[in-house]
Nucleic acid binder design. Structure first.
Lengths: 198, 198, 198, 198
DNA sequence: TATGAATGAGATTTCATTCAT
DNA sequence: CATGAATGAAATCTCATTCAT
């Protein structure tokens, strides 16, 4: 029994994501540079050599992980825009992304990506590109939802402030040992309303 | 002419901080685990072996760097508390710490520390300890400056939100390519006022 | 043509024993701690890094060498027990083990193992375990060959004395420059007979 | 106040033996090559550099330790010879040296010396020299105590066998976990009598 | 006499990557 | 497609020895 040509790339695709899933787990636990190809291979359930069939080198795995993560980001961002009352939608669905930032696993990988971007130009470029795309999406939301016209600078600054809040919560997830999320939401919600309506 | 006993540890102290200065530079550029002892020794202008006279191992250097950084943090925090009108003082001196977060060097090391804390229990403990101390300082400020009594949860939540804002700006310094600081201050200042007065 | 699964561990097994053979030679010449991994790798004809595929660290190589040596010991011990007249068998085959103790190579590795056991708890444990097993074998011989019943203490003491004689000859192989083996046998044989029959 | 010239070498002598005492302790615990000059200096209560005033290098310390140990050996040997009935004296004072061999500290250093002699020609030479001197002393005893004339070979062989017994007990002190000394003496005494009278 | 700063060589160990099978 | 043997470079760390003070 021979695999048909159409099955081939499908199988390869599966193997690739098998590696990426393992890499996500490993990188969270040990960091990009604290995780060896051997550990990764073990976690992925395949041989070290075989990983090199799917990825040129370790760098490429890191980049794929970053790419994957950034794309998920973009997708969840663009979902908001479809709603008729954007601002209300943001406030209504606020809790979920806030909760996500507080998952240590999630936060750890995000911080790892940022740390890598601070030194690795390729990763920096990927992060910047997505940052610009997210900015454009959020800008559209702010224009759509605002009751008064906003200058380019106002849009940028509101975006940065809102983004900083979320990125910052991720950092807090690591810095603080435990956080009272309900209490946080109670003050966060009006603050975001304040920024949106300002 | 004999060296006084008090001069001896002074010299050792100097050598130690010479290593720490070099380490700060190296760690900013390459990260804790991307910087080798050889690089570090070269930057510090001494032999690799000699560094081990002053630090038990690389871990100990990382911990010293983290400790140093956290202590500076604490000092600059506690300065604010002395002012008669704390909230006004915060708003008046806001720009300086915001500007600091935007220095790539500064941000890179901070993120490196957070990333390390996510995996290294010893570093995590140091970060948590300082976090609690900073929290207490800020809590005192909030109590001192507020016009109404605040519940423990309210204090904690306000603290976390304010901290998240600053930590987040640091992340933005890496994610965004450039930021219009004046525009940012224009929206940040009223937001912080809002949080303080809420 | 596909390699059968049974061939795979065989190859690994061969490489492992290739390392152990080289280690035996090196350790004899330079001692456990006087022999570097580089020397060992050269002698084994493979790269230093590759040795770490088969052994976790140098310690593990030392332990494997000790284990191997102790097992050979046990085997040659248990062979004696099968004979109908044990004591006569011991006296008849005495010369071979005595000759063995006088080979400088052999003695050097034995002493190295004892020296290691004096400091390394893991090796001490291995040595003690085998010591107890040898004791049990010899005890069986003494009981089988004696014309009168022996107390536990008598058995132990005879065993220790006989063992000491052999271990001691090994030490003499290093302390003395050369020994007249025939002369030695002439006095050793009746002494051992004396101990056995006592 | 100036030290008189006659005090100088006395003080130096003290410092030297201070180092040797520390070295004895350290070498017992870690072996010649497992003990660093830094450990040694700490144990001796002086600086690393200062040890080099009294000993050319680490080798020289090892050699001094070996020399010291061998000399003690010689002294205690020659004491026996003075007695009118040598053999009886040997049997009467047997227990003390046997007990000494069973002290783990003592045995560990002796074995360390033998192990070193197996590889280090200088140490081998020292050990051989003393071995010959001890042989001569014991030969004199055997001649003095024997009721019949002994051939050179007989003397040598008896000496080697007796020596092997003692050296072997030292090895047993490490190989065996614990030994019943009274039981051992009960069989050892007649065995030695047997060898002496043979 | 005494210190401990300083070094350079070398030890053990790790690891990304290649390659024969 | 799949393995894991194999390597070489580099990383961390140790240590005997020297030297300025």
């Amino acid at each position: 029994m021979v695999t048909t040509p159409s099955q081939e790339p499908q199988r390869a695709q599966m193997r690739r994501s098998q590696v990426l899933q393992a890499a996500t787990r490993c990188f969270r636990l040990y960091g990009f540079h604290g995780c060896s190809m051997a550990q990764l291979a073990k976690e992925a359930g395949m041989s070290v050599g075989h990983i090199y069939h799917y990825f040129e080198n370790k760098e490429a795995i890191i980049e794929a992980i970053v790419q994957q993560d950034l794309e998920e980001w973009l997708i969840s961002m663009s979902r908001l825009l479809d709603s008729p009352d954007v601002f209300q939608e943001i406030l209504d669905t606020l809790e979920e992304p806030v909760r996500e930032t507080q998952q240590p696993d999630y936060a750890a990988l995000q911080i790892e990506i940022i740390a890598e971007a601070a030194r690795n130009p390729k990763v920096a470029h990927m992060v910047h590109t997505v940052h610009r795309q997210v900015r454009d999406t959020v800008a559209a939301m702010l224009i759509k939802g605002s009751r008064r016209p906003l200058s380019e600078t106002e849009i940028d600054s509101k975006f940065e402030l809102l983004s900083a809040l979320f990125d910052g919560l991720m950092v807090r997830a690591i810095r603080a040992e435990k956080m009272d999320l309900d209490g946080l939401m109670a003050i966060m919600r009006p603050t975001i309303r304040f920024i949106l309506d300002h």
